[in-house]
């Protein structure tokens, strides 16, 4: 099978998954115990108001009509209004989504900067004190709750040292320096888990490669070790690392919900949390859909890139 048909097959799977996810998210409103309109308005709302919301949410139509209306609306940009503030959901999300992506990308960059050198260092100094220290870091990084780390970093760097802002965000177009400064603390808190996982991953992939026959052969032919490491093993180890990177990016997108709340960052994550606490279903649905959609898209790209980088895999 060629790379093209492989890509087509993966695309097909992604479309199916997105379809399934949309049904699940659409179902949120309908699986809520009781009348969602009543749940939204509270126990003391009068009958007319409830009926109004039912009409607005289209709850009186048959399910498949509701779903297809919802799907068409979603695809054409009619995402409804917030039940609380009455602002269009599309505007709210379009404002905040790029900020969340920016945060996740920044966290990913931090994870790469930490994990790549640590992983390589650990693998090259296997079973030494350096290696142990690397593994210990990654173990702590996995065990630390990211929101707690965020609070501690905000306390130390924001409050005690006063060197970095501990809440809010600034657009890059407005002030690039302030933008980066506002990203550092949430980025580190969010990225530390990915850094820890990627460090382990890089280390074990690198060790795998160093144990391969081609390394022994190259050594026997008298190639200097440095050249083998940097020219061959590193390149081979980077292929699975890049795939893992994409997966981690997906998890970072899930992590923004928590970290954005810690730092009052004002992205989609905070939108979801407030929506959940206020039972503002249109916001919750569309925000979850956009994050799940991003996650699916990233995984699709990662799989195709992996297929391209590693022609040996059987499609």
């Amino acid at each position: 099978m060629s790379i093209l048909s492989y890509a087509a097959k993966r695309l097909f799977v992604s479309i199916w998954v997105l379809f399934g996810a949309s049904i699940l998210i659409f179902g949120i409103v309908h699986l809520v115990p009781g009348d969602p309109a009543r749940v939204t308005l509270g126990r003391f709302a009068d009958r007319e108001a409830v009926e109004g919301v039912r009409q607005e949410m289209g709850l009186n139509d048959p399910l498949y009509v509701q779903y297809s209306d919802w799907l068409v609306g979603t695809l054409t940009g009619d995402w409804g209004n917030s039940l609380i503030s009455n602002q269009p959901v599309l505007t709210l999300i379009v404002e905040r989504f790029p900020k969340s992506i920016e945060l996740a990308l920044f966290a990913l960059a931090i994870a790469v900067v930490i994990s790549l050198p640590l992983g390589i260092m650990g693998a090259l100094n296997r079973s030494t004190k350096t290696d142990q220290a690397t593994l210990f870091f990654s173990q702590i990084g996995i065990a630390i709750p990211n929101f707690w780390l965020g609070i501690m970093l905000a306390l130390i760097f924001g409050r005690y040292l006063g060197v970095l802002p501990a809440s809010g965000s600034v657009a890059f177009t407005e002030d690039p320096v302030q933008n980066i400064r506002h990203l550092i603390l949430p980025g580190v808190s969010l990225g530390i888990l990915a850094a820890a996982v990627l460090t382990r991953y890089m280390r074990s992939e690198m060790i795998d490669q160093l144990n391969k026959d081609y390394v022994t052969t190259a050594r026997a032919f008298g190639h200097p070790k440095k050249r083998i490491v940097w020219k061959y093993t590193l390149k081979n180890a980077l292929i699975p690392y890049v795939t893992m990177l994409g997966m981690q990016f997906g998890f970072l997108i899930g992590g923004v919900v928590v970290i954005e709340t810690v730092f009052a960052y004002g992205g989609v994550g905070q939108l979801i949390l407030n929506g959940l606490l206020n039972r503002d279903y249109p916001i919750v649905q569309m925000s979850l859909l956009i994050l799940a959609g991003t996650f699916i898209l990233v995984n699709l790209v990662v799989d195709i890139v992996y297929g391209y980088l590693n022609p040996r895999i059987s499609y």
């Binding site: 799977v13 199916w16 899930g254 959940l276 279903y281």
Partner: peptide, 25 residues
Amino acid sequence: MRAVDVMLAFPSILLALVVIAILGP
């Protein structure tokens, strides 16, 4: 496995949030 694919379309914290959106906190 196709059902699993759909569930894995969400990072687990988001999937948990979907369930909480339905059932409440």
